[in-house]
């Protein structure tokens, strides 16, 4: 049952990502990407990470993609007839390089074939304890980084 759900969600995710990167309208690309991230959140839940799944929906689909949408609409970029999609000559080398990377990763993934250990993960409480005790320094670094991002965004966005 769970395996079937995983393959369905994987198919949805791949199709939505393909539609997102080939469409010519930026707003449609964002909406397809939100679909893809919802499917990814389902995959996270199936992979025993419910907290990461929730954060994926809240932060990625909820905040980051809305930020993209907000910038696209604020700058009035939703006119596909002005920009247009890349020519075929730009897709071909990109597809070639992407296929090379995919072949490499598939070769690496084939090395894991056969081992299928059942894993039981601890709950949210152990997650939080590990996050704030063992990786406390990383939390501090991340908070400093977010502060720098706020200062930089304010500096770049000010009116002269």
């Amino acid at each position: 049952m769970a395996a079937t759900l995983f393959y369905i969600l994987a198919t949805v995710m791949v199709i939505a990502t393909i539609l997102a990167i080939t469409g010519r309208h930026p707003v449609h690309a964002i909406v397809y990407l939100v679909t893809s991230f919802f499917a990814l959140a389902g995959i996270f839940y199936l992979l025993l990470a419910p907290l990461v799944a929730m954060f994926e929906v809240i932060i990625y689909a909820g905040a980051v993609m809305v930020l993209f949408m907000f910038v696209i609409m604020m700058l009035d970029l939703g006119h596909p007839e002005r920009g247009g999609r890349p020519a075929l000559g730009q897709w071909l080398p990109a597809l070639l390089l992407g296929a090379t990377v995919l072949a490499t990763i598939s070769y690496a993934a084939a090395g894991f074939a056969g081992d299928k250990l059942p894993a039981m993960l601890p709950g949210v409480k152990e997650f939080a304890v590990t996050l704030f005790s063992r990786y406390g320094v990383a939390i501090e670094v991340i908070s400093l980084q977010l502060l720098f991002a706020v200062v930089g965004a304010l500096y770049l966005g000010r009116r002269r």
Partner: peptide, 20 residues
């Protein structure tokens, strides 16, 4: 729930699409 290499293959497909 699924073999590990299938998840890695899915991640590879998504990564290649992002690279493209």
């Amino acid at each position: 729930i699924v073999p590990f290499e299938h998840v890695i293959a899915l991640a590879g497909i998504i990564f290649s699409l992002g690279l493209v």
